[in-house]
């Protein structure tokens, strides 16, 4: 297993380099312009000077090399320096990956966005899983019962109705009509006491619910299918023949085996959490990583988009590996090496 992991990790290096190059080329070839969103009152010569100041005048391989050095050398060195509170190398003049729109280091922007994305999107993922697993189990156990039919219906809704619709619908109902929850997320809120905790919960309620519904819809379907696969297996009959309690049969025998594929699906979904939920973040003004990405794309902020998408690529590759390893750990039939 260790050898497998190391081998896979080594393989990821060329993969990721290739991905970074592809992202870079795609962004570069895409027809967009960082000055495109500026008011037309700014004359063309000034735009040209802005582009030059951003380094767009250099040939593409220079810019790619610069990004590589900034991302793989300068940023880690900077992080290390911050952790150890020391200055490594030429820390004063070290060039970091800098956003064109904000002129600030991209990594700092990402770090600033991380809390709300993890709180809202991450929590919704956890809530989604916590809802989905019992629903999936019970739906499969009572296949075609009214509960199962209802579950199927709700997950169909959760799956097919886009979050920009459910989100706005919830805002109209709960913010405009009932006034229970705020429609705009306050990212500056610090939880220090009970009332601020209450405010935090209120503002998280709707985005978390909308996303959790979506996640739960997906995962509960997987859970149900996997449970159905296992429920008719002979070993379940064996377990019943052993005279085991029905609860033990379902929760210990069937559930544990059914969770194997579900856990890998869940692991593969984790990078999406970090990717944020572009639409939901926009609807509720959560302004996490998803919103950062979409603003970067709209403003042709190439360093920001490049770095964010590359980090997502790293996470996806990483969680693919984690899913594989988890599979190996959970399923004794699978052994690497």
């Amino acid at each position: 297993m260790l050898n497998f992991t190391i081998r896979r990790l080594l393989f990821t290096i060329p993969t990721l380099l290739l991905i970074s190059l592809i992202i870079f080329l795609l962004l570069d070839l895409a027809p967009n312009d960082p000055t495109g969103n500026l008011p037309l009152t700014i004359p063309a010569e000034v735009r040209e000077q802005i582009r030059k100041a951003l380094g767009l005048g250099d040939p593409i391989y220079v810019r790619y090399y610069r990004w590589l050095v900034q991302f793989f050398v300068n940023e880690p060195l900077n992080l290390l320096g911050e952790w150890t509170h020391s200055c490594i190398g030429d820390c004063e003049n070290r060039l970091r990956v800098t956003s064109w729109a904000t002129r600030s280091p991209v990594v700092d922007l990402i770090a600033e966005r991380m809390p709300q994305t993890l709180w809202v999107v991450g929590l919704s993922y956890v809530v989604g899983i916590l809802i989905a697993v019992p629903i999936g189990v019970y739906s499969a156990y009572r296949q075609y019962s009214w509960f199962d039919q209802l579950g199927t219906f709700i997950s169909m809704i959760g799956f097919s109705v886009p979050t920009f619709f459910t989100g706005v619908l919830m805002i109209v109902i709960f913010s405009v009509q009932l006034r229970w929850f705020p429609s705009i997320y306050d990212t500056t809120l610090r939880v220090t006491d009970w009332s601020s905790l209450g405010a935090q919960i209120r503002q998280m309620a709707m985005p978390v619910f909308v996303l959790a519904l979506y996640n739960a819809a997906q995962i509960s379907r997987f859970m149900r299918a996997s449970m159905l696969d296992n429920l008719n297996q002979d070993y379940v009959r064996t377990a019943r023949a052993k005279g085991l309690n029905e609860r033990v049969v379902v929760l210990v025998h069937v559930l544990r085996n059914s969770l194997i594929p579900v856990v890998t699906v869940i692991a593969l979904g984790v990078p999406q959490v970090f990717g944020g939920a572009i639409i939901t973040e926009q609807v509720f003004k959560v302004n996490g990583l998803g919103q950062l990405l979409i603003i970067g794309i709209q403003g042709a902020d190439i360093p920001l988009v490049q770095t964010l998408t590359f980090i997502f690529a790293v996470l996806i590759v990483l969680f693919n590996l984690i899913a594989d390893i988890l599979y190996g750990i959970l399923d004794p039939r699978i052994r690497y090496d």
């Binding site: 913010s175 429609s183 705009i184 306050d186 926009q282 609807v283 509720f284 003004k285 302004n287």
Partner: peptide, 20 residues
């Protein structure tokens, strides 16, 4: 607080409808 994000309709709603 000078908040950003969302779209024009949502911004309008937050002033005209919810009063936030």
């Amino acid at each position: 607080t000078f908040k950003g994000g969302g779209d024009a309709a949502a911004a309008a709603r937050s002033v005209l409808e919810t009063g936030e």
